[in-house]
Design a protein around this nucleic acid. Structure first.
Length: 200
DNA sequence: ACGCCGATGTCCT
DNA sequence: GGACATCGGCGTT
């Protein structure tokens, strides 16, 4: 197996920051990862897999190196890299990146948003890559796969910052979001908010 | 710059 | 029936 596969089998809070600088590759767009979040299947109440296996999250329980793609808020898709050992549902959400290839295609898919925003946020990134639920379960480490994960220039530890995850209400304080310091494509931090206060 | 809020489908209690 | 690993538009500072 590849070095990258071996790396993906480690503890997700160590794997996640090691994916910064790696590149997601489709037929027409390349994105360098600048921001990620770790989700642990066993002891992490914020993980989709925390309550066990369902049809939606089944891919997370499989082997590392596959894409877990979910649909949320009625309109958005988000992409994870499945990590860890088979049977334990850990994954790394790819939250943002820099489009480093196929910029014209990404611009069209994103409706002419500023280049910095093309993949600045997990749903925007999927839109730039044209990734949807049909990509769920796709192997990321095979040469002929429609979406691949390649090694890139990994930033040094001094360039990696961490903090609370975005938009999660359970275990909000767990500092499992990692990003490249100073990179303009890193998404804005938005704490989870309860939209409808319990007025009745 | 920041804050609020609606959109809209699926999952889970 | 509520929550959701979000986004873009619009209003206000």
């Amino acid at each position: 197996m590849s070095d990258l596969f071996d790396r993906l089998t480690g503890p997700v809070e160590q794997v996640a920051p090691s994916l910064l600088g790696c590149v997601l590759v489709t037929a027409d767009v390349r994105i360098r990862i600048t921001e990620v979040e770790a989700y642990d299947g066993e002891h992490d109440p914020a993980s989709h897999a925390w309550r066990g296996r369902t049809a939606r999250n089944a891919t997370m329980f499989g082997p590392a190196g596959h894409a877990y793609v979910y649909f949320t808020y009625g309109m958005h898709h988000c992409l994870n890299v499945v990590t860890g050992v088979e049977g334990v549902a850990s994954g790394t959400l790819v939250r943002a990146g820099e489009v480093v290839g196929g910029v014209e295609t990404a611009r069209v898919r994103r409706g002419g948003a500023p280049d910095r925003d093309l993949a600045r946020g997990p749903a925007r990134l999927c839109r730039a890559l044209a990734v949807d639920r049909s990509y769920d379960g796709t192997p990321l480490l095979l040469d002929d796969s429609p979406i691949r994960l390649e090694e890139g220039d990994t930033p040094g530890p001094e360039m990696i910052l961490s903090g609370p995850r975005v938009g999660v209400s359970r275990e909000a304080e767990r500092p499992w979001r990692f990003w490249i310091a100073g990179d303009p494509t890193v998404s804005a931090y938005r704490p989870a908010v309860r939209r409808r206060p319990a007025t009745r």
